[in-house]
Design a protein around this nucleic acid. Structure first.
Length: 419
DNA sequence: CTGACGGGCGCATAGAC
DNA sequence: GTCTATGCGCC
DNA sequence: GTCAG
């Protein structure tokens, strides 16, 4: 029994939402032409841009960094207000810019409207509004109008480990710059600035730059070497967009496992502080330290099951700090962990929906019959489906197997059965 | 119209006792 | 000092 | 912003 699921939060699971947010609905929205009136609203700014910039509009250029900053600020601003609905559109806008500019936007300082049209849906109203505004006014009025306090809040909220609440508190109590927070010693800005927050503030700029695939390849080789030297029986895999074969990644998402850990131990005590040196994670961590891949002063979190920190390629003074996320997985859950953390998000949503159709619950720990206990969905005891490979999970769901590199939406939408 | 928006986990830190 | 709650980020 | 109720 996957006992980790015992301690579920008290939040209720509303079936109404589960039903309407399931993927087939979203796919239908993507594939079926939207109603004309609705479309007019969405493409309003793209159309305005076309009219205002004239026949040569495709050759107009915007500054890559200005566009990125504006999209990120607006994304951050949106997350501070109750209405979070446009998140996917900002993410799509950012993805489009990175697709054009590569991992480091500084390498390609301007983008043409024509290029953007190729990678950014004209229905992405929020992103085209930003492009329109930059071309017309040279700035984004929506951001210029913000109060000084709100601008600081938006900037702070972009930083890793500074969420909604901390960002608002810091700005409300007078903090205006990253330096203010880095140099703060007590709670003069309302709350104490944590170690992780100071670290993220210091390396914020580097952390926002995407990682090119070749660099992850190098990390992969160095990690393999380091772990092999320390203990060849420890296995690992890099998941996420890298495993899907994409050209850039936002972080390095690693899973480690060892034959001695077969399943989650419900009675395992939660250790405070660093993992025991002889534990699996302890050995991994020490191997990473020894190889110069991690540094003890650049860690966000170091636990028995999860380690988060900044890492840079050793020996290269110009190498940027990259976020590396290591998590320990019992071998019994490994195929589910690999599947769940390789994604992409839409595929996982789709697979969970397919599982639900068969009255199964699928998550990163396993798959089993659904049983609802006071509005919470659990595995029915004894029904977990043990698999050795990811392919067996697709088999159980009666879907064709997707290799990791086929799991990006633009690929799998053409392979999996339509709805 | 209202009221919802992924769920559940691991970690660090704040707060309670 | 120990235990619990909260904030955060992750997929 | 969008959707179910």
């Amino acid at each position: 029994m996957n006992t980790g699921l015992r301690a579920l939060s008290t939040m209720t699971f509303r079936t109404t939402f589960a039903r309407r947010s399931c993927l087939p609905v979203r796919l239908a929205q993507r594939q079926v032409a939207t109603q004309p009136l609705f479309e007019t609203q969405k493409v309003k700014y793209w159309k305005q841009l076309k009219e205002e910039q004239g026949g040569d509009y495709k050759n107009r250029t915007v500054s890559t960094s200005q566009l990125l900053t504006a999209l990120r600020d607006l994304q951050s601003y949106r997350s501070l207000t109750p209405n979070k609905s446009t998140f996917p559109d900002y993410r799509a806008g950012l993805r489009a810019v990175f697709l054009l500019a590569g991992s480091d936007p500084a390498a390609r300082p301007t983008l043409t409207v024509g290029d953007l049209e190729n990678v950014l849906s004209t229905e992405n109203g929020v992103s085209w509004r930003v492009i329109h505004d930059i071309l017309k006014y040279g700035l984004v009025p929506q951001l210029e109008e913000l109060t000084e306090e709100m601008r600081a809040t938006v900037a702070f909220n972009r930083v890793h480990a500074i969420g909604n609440i901390y960002a608002k508190t810091f700005a409300k109590n007078g903090a205006r710059t990253f330096e203010d927070l880095i140099n703060s010693t007590g709670d003069e800005y309302g709350k104490k600035v944590s170690k992780a927050q100071k670290l993220a503030l210091k390396y914020h700029h580097e952390m926002e730059i995407m990682i090119p695939r070749q660099e992850v390849d190098k990390f992969d080789m160095l990690i393999k070497d380091a772990l092999n030297k320390a203990d060849p029986t420890i296995k690992y895999e890099i998941m996420g967009s890298y495993r899907r074969g994409e050209e850039t990644s936002s972080d390095i998402d690693m899973v480690v496992w060892h034959d001695s850990l077969k399943r989650r131990d419900p009675d395992a005590k939660v250790r405070k502080g660093n993992p025991a040196p002889d534990s699996i994670m302890g050995r991994v961590l020490n191997a990473m330290f020894s190889a110069g891949l991690f540094s003890s002063d650049k860690m966000f979190a170091t636990g028995e099951k999860k380690v988060w920190g900044l890492s840079r390629l050793p020996g290269d003074p110009k190498a940027l700090h990259r976020q590396v996320d290591v998590r320990l997985c019992p071998t019994e859950s490994l195929p589910y962990m690999l599947l769940g953390n390789t994604g992409d998000n839409d595929l996982m949503r789709f697979l969970r929906y397919k599982a639900e159709e068969k009255d199964l619950l699928l998550n990163e720990y396993g798959m089993g019959q659904r049983v609802s206990i006071s509005n919470q969905v659990h595995f029915k005891p004894g029904t977990e489906i043990i698999v050795q490979t990811e392919k067996e999970i697709f088999d159980k769901l009666e879907l064709p197997y997707l290799e990791p590199h086929q799991r990006s939406y633009k690929v799998w939408k053409n392979i999996l059965p339509r709805y």
